[in-house]
Amino acid sequence: MKVRGWTWATSWSVVALWTLVSLLVAMASLTALFTPTWFVRHTPSPPTMFGVWAWCVGGEVRGDQQQRCAAVGQSAGEGHHGALPSAVWVMVGALYGGGGALLGVTGVAALVVPFLPTTQARAALAHVSANIQAAAVSLQAVGLLLYPLGLGSPFVRMQCGDAASLYASGTCELGYAYMLALVATALAAYCPVLARLITYKDYTDYWSNLNYM
């Protein structure tokens, strides 16, 4: 008689998509982390920008004026003194940076998955990576929510005016690095879902030689 059974199979299209997205969000997260354009002030001159770990003064080279950058808390040149904005930003660096590092590790794991010999091994590594990616997204989301708490610090008020306060940037504007961080975190939220879809039940019909009374 004909019997229907199933076995676990690998969806290579999902594996390729998961690997691509995992690598992209890892690179985007780390790029955003080290780019000092989370908030930008265009006027008055010279323009100022700052991120989690660095800040810059000036723009394109004009005569003897050029962009000067320094770690947050250090001077970016004569007359442009820095100060540690907030202990919250130290926490943001640890949270978002830790999440980015975890995404980087899972991106490498995603590259290894296609070379594993069995579907079960691929599923096991993908599920572990999915749990790590979920934790990374949670860390990054908390970091992104905490970062605007530092906008009320003396450092930011000196750069963005007295109107700057918690979750209000005063004369500064949202920069592309913060937007990149938001987009990377939002896309990374899909990675755990894709990781759990790389295997599926492949149903097949076959003939059984069992005799039933």
Rank of each mutant, 00 (worst) to 15 (best):
L197K: 15
L24F: 12
T185A: 02
N211L: 10
C191R: 08
A195M: 10
Y96W: 00
S22A: 15
V3A: 04
V108F: 12
A121K: 07
L180C: 08
V112D: 00
L139V: 12
A28Q: 02
G98W: 01
A184P: 02
T119I: 07
S86L: 09
S153I: 07
L20V: 15
L95F: 05
A135E: 09
A101R: 00
V14A: 12
T7I: 13
A16E: 03
A189P: 03
G63N: 13
V137P: 08
T31H: 01
A188R: 06
S22G: 13
V72T: 15
V112H: 00
Q65T: 09
L95T: 03
V3K: 15
Y176G: 11
G104A: 09
M158E: 09
S29I: 03
M158I: 00
L166A: 13
T35Y: 14
T199F: 02
T10C: 11
L197H: 02
T106G: 08
C172V: 02
Y212D: 09
D205L: 13
L24M: 07
A70S: 15
C172P: 08
T31V: 13
T7S: 12
A110K: 03
V52G: 08
C160L: 01
H127G: 08
Q159F: 04
G99M: 04
A83H: 06
H81M: 10
A94S: 08
N211D: 12
L84C: 06
A134S: 14
G82D: 04
L149H: 03
H127S: 14
S13E: 07
W12E: 11
Y176V: 07
A168G: 03
Y176C: 02
L149F: 05
C160R: 04
N131I: 13
G5K: 13
M91I: 11
V88Q: 06
H42G: 04
Q159N: 11
P46W: 03
A94I: 14
V90W: 11
A110I: 07
L145R: 02
L33R: 01
A54F: 13
S129T: 12
M158C: 02
